[in-house]
Design a protein around this nucleic acid. Structure first.
Lengths: 140, 140
DNA sequence: CTTGATGCAAAACGTTTGCAGACTC
DNA sequence: GAGTCTGCAAACGTTTTGCATCAAG
């Protein structure tokens, strides 16, 4: 675990912030504030507004990435400066990560076409996972 | 204007619904409920909950598409069964439509790899438009 | 006349904020 | 000790909902 992530982001190194960061570091996918609350509550009790404030501070410093998903919740994940999107089952909410991202070349094209400085993108796939598809076929 | 869009979607043909649909049909981009409220208010006064209910009914019937964007608002647009994404200036909120969508082949790959039935995706680009970039350079 | 649509006000939801007290540096 | 972080409760903005009334089929 990187002990000076907080220090180098000009943020005070509190136990709660360290715990939030370590939860995000070990997570396989992006997490909501509520999920982070659950995961940290075993080790330490903290207010949900503390979690939101810590997450926003970290996102401002680009330590983590923040994105609003279609379920209306904001997801946070460590910013490893690589791309990862996800595929979400609209029935059971299972979420699996996708490594491939075909958008860089499109971004370059868009930049030259529009004059924009492209700073990022948001991409989510929706579908029905095999388990839910099977379940659905049965009940029909 | 298609007079039986509502009828064929099993929805009652009310003046308000017709007006909402016509606003969406003439819009160049996806609209929020609030924007639709403003655009319709010249012709007819209606409650915001009526607008939300009409939009949700239409989205359920796949007459329109509904998507939550990064500004926290839900945008609605006519479902012409083609793809269009957008590029959004994070400073002035200018939004320009993008026709290209390179995701079909990736969707096929994901489907075979994960077993999911892929039903859709959500894609947004962020950047800074030339005007805002110029303004920003001046104030520095 | 039955069913679905509407208005209003209140609630829901995830997130943010003001303020007083507690902690890090 | 200065400046930042935290907890609590209250506020926020968008969207949804319960219920009574109204209009479309």
């Amino acid at each position: 675990m990187d002990n000076n992530t907080l220090k180098s982001a000009d943020l005070k190194q509190t136990k709660k912030r360290i715990l939030i960061l370590s939860v995000l570091e070990t997570a396989a996918t992006a997490l909501t504030a509520e999920e982070i609350d659950e995961l940290t509550s075993k080790d330490m009790k903290m207010s949900i507004s503390t979690i939101y404030r810590a997450l926003n501070a970290l996102a401002d410093k680009n330590v983590i990435k923040k994105a609003l998903h279609q379920d209306g919740k904001t997801y946070y994940e460590i910013n490893n400066h690589t791309h990862r999107h996800s595929l979400l089952c609209t029935l059971c909410n299972e979420r699996i990560p996708i490594d491939a991202c075909p958008l860089e070349s499109l971004e370059n094209y868009l930049a030259s076409e529009t004059g924009y400085v492209i700073t990022g993108h948001n991409l989510e796939f929706f579908g029905i996972c095999p388990k839910c598809a099977a379940k659905k076929a049965k009940t029909k």
